[in-house]
C-alpha cells in the first residue's frame, strides 16, 4: 500500500513545484500571462534583435548614456527612464500606444511625437531604430 502511494505523492509534488520555475521569459511566451501590449520582436517587421543589441552596445547614439538598458554593458544612464520590460509596456514614453511602429518612430525621432521631449533625435537611421526596437521587445522582465 505504502509502495503504491509513492508515485502518486511524487506526481503531486512535481505538480506543486511546477509553479516554482520562472518559466522562459521569451517573446513566444504569449500563453499564460499575456503581456499588456502584444508587442512581439517578430512583429517588428524587418527588425533584428541581435543587430539592435549591437547598435546599443556600440554606444554611437548615446542611448546607454541616458538610459539603463538590460543586457547592454555600460548602459547605465539616468537622464531618461530605464528601458526594462519595454516588451511589456502599454505606452511608449507615456504618449503612444506601444506598437512596433510607434516605438520605431519614437526611437528614430522623438521630436515628431513631442518636440519638448528631452530625448533628442540622435541621428539613428530608421533601419537601425527598427533593429533596436526588436531588441527592446525582447526585454520582458522587471528589475
Amino acid at each position: 500500500m505504502a509502495r503504491r502511494g509513492m508515485p502518486i505523492l511524487a506526481a503531486a509534488l512535481s505538480w506543486a513545484l511546477a509553479g516554482c520555475g520562472e518559466g522562459p521569459a521569451t517573446a513566444n511566451n504569449t500563453t499564460g500571462d499575456l503581456p499588456r501590449s502584444h508587442a512581439d520582436p517578430q512583429a517588428v517587421a524587418g527588425g533584428d534583435a541581435a543587430r539592435g543589441r549591437a547598435v546599443l552596445a556600440g554606444g554611437t547614439y548615446g542611448c546607454g548614456a541616458c538610459h539603463a538598458i538590460p543586457g547592454i554593458d555600460g548602459a547605465r544612464g539616468t537622464v531618461g527612464p530605464p528601458l526594462h520590460a519595454m516588451g511589456l509596456r502599454a505606452y511608449v514614453a507615456g504618449r503612444l500606444p506601444n506598437t512596433p511602429g510607434n516605438l520605431v518612430t519614437w526611437i528614430e525621432n522623438p521630436r515628431l511625437v513631442d518636440p519638448r521631449s528631452a530625448m533628442p533625435a540622435t541621428g539613428i537611421t530608421r533601419a537601425e531604430a527598427t533593429d533596436v526596437a526588436a531588441y527592446l521587445y525582447t526585454l520582458r522582465t522587471l528589475p
Partner: peptide
C-alpha cells in the same frame, strides 16, 4: 562617442 544623443546626455548628466 560623439553625436547629438551623447552630447545631450553629457550636458544633462
Amino acid at each position: 562617442p560623439n553625436g547629438v544623443g551623447p552630447l545631450a546626455a553629457w550636458i544633462a548628466d
